[in-house]
Amino acid sequence: MRTLEGAALWAAVAGYALAFAALSAGTFLGRERLGRAGWRLAAAGWAAHTLAIAVRWIATGHAPVQGAYENSLSGAWFIPLLGGVLVRQYRPAIRAAPFIVAIALLLLGNGIMAPAVHLPLEPPFRSNWLVVHVAFAWLAFGSYLVASVLAGYHLWLSRRRAAVPAARPAVIDELSAKLIAFGFVGDTVMIASGAIWAHGLWGRYWAWDPIETWSLVSWLTYAVYLHLRFTLGWTGSRAAWLALGAAAVVVVTFFGIGVVSDVHTQLL
């Protein structure tokens, strides 16, 4: 089982790495065919990634959401998935794909550095809330990150002013906003499910520990984005910069606070 998991994981890493190179050639050198091949490589990498998750899930008997290794494995999985849905919706968004694949690679790399020992689920995690909470956390995180890649791509496109742009900047901008809205729903589910779960475990649904405070800070940041965008009509570069700033807050929440603080796991 472990060999199969390892092989699938390395196949995923190789698939993504090659996809990154080919997609970059498509985006930056205009080599369309390489770009398309990159897309297929990313899909193959993702299939291997899915296999690695399935094998680990079967071997440990629980969803792979415990500890840094498993969390990176599952978290990274959502990123190419969201990228795939995006490109299906709007084909020219494929030019932003190298960055999407790069994020998945970075996340996986972060996981590979952590120990991958098989451990049984700790008592607090033995709850149906676990999968809901963690899956929505990663869905939200993935959506926000892919949205920020699109925001960056939008800024790049709108500065280049090519006679025939590779993609319509306004569409890219709107797709970024759509992903943020989608991520925000996931974020809300993550926070709400975490809070209700925390009440059952610790008799309180909110205690202002760093991860709770920062989850709220990120949530509020995106709430501000959505209001500025949909109520006050912010679009284009202003919205893109805002999306990039908000993504920085989310990265602090997930990696700065989530990883260094141990308060998320109390006692038992």
Binding site: K178, A181, F182, F184, V185, T188, V189, A192, A195, I196, H199, G203, R204, Y205
Partner: peptide
Amino acid sequence: SRDPGLPWFTLGALLGVGGLALRF
């Protein structure tokens, strides 16, 4: 523990999530 705010918080969370899903 006893928390009179919990039912309101839970109701708020359900309405919030359902509402957002409908809105978007």
